[in-house]
């Protein structure tokens, strides 16, 4: 079970939180201009990273605010949590489709990478 640091309330048990999946998926600015393939990418395709991953959580049984987290999905270790609207404190692999994806192994600080393989 996780202990998650809400940026507003501090560290609490996982049961106080709800999960919101991958973070930083921006709603298309001009929906009418999107092709079917672009819609498919926005609606269905996910990076599903093994390694450093940006995701959304909501502190449902606390302040009820949404925030973002960086977690290593290969070890379940939380690297950071941060307020919505802020940039992730570390570069995250494959934020946007088509973006240059940094090597996830390089992005994770030594102590956070733990023993997980990727």
């Amino acid at each position: 079970m996780f202990r998650i640091r809400c940026p507003y309330c501090g560290e609490r048990d996982q049961i106080e939180f709800g999960y919101g999946g991958e973070a930083h998926i921006a709603r298309p600015a001009d929906p009418d201009a999107l092709s079917d393939a672009q819609w498919a990418d926005y609606v269905f395709m996910r990076t599903n990273t093994k390694g450093l991953f940006a995701e959304r959580w909501v502190h449902s049984a606390g302040c009820r605010r949404w925030f973002n987290a960086l977690r290593d999905t290969a070890t379940d270790r939380f690297v950071a949590t941060y307020v919505i609207g802020e940039a992730p404190p570390l570069p995250v692999p494959q934020l946007v489709p088509g973006d240059q994806a940094p090597d996830p192994a390089e992005a994770i600080p030594e102590e956070a990478a733990g023993g997980g393989q990727r």
Partner: peptide, 13 residues
């Protein structure tokens, strides 16, 4: 479990 993971373990709740 609601969250994504590759660790082959879930949470107790």
């Amino acid at each position: 479990d609601a969250h994504l993971s590759y660790t082959q373990r879930g949470a107790f709740p």
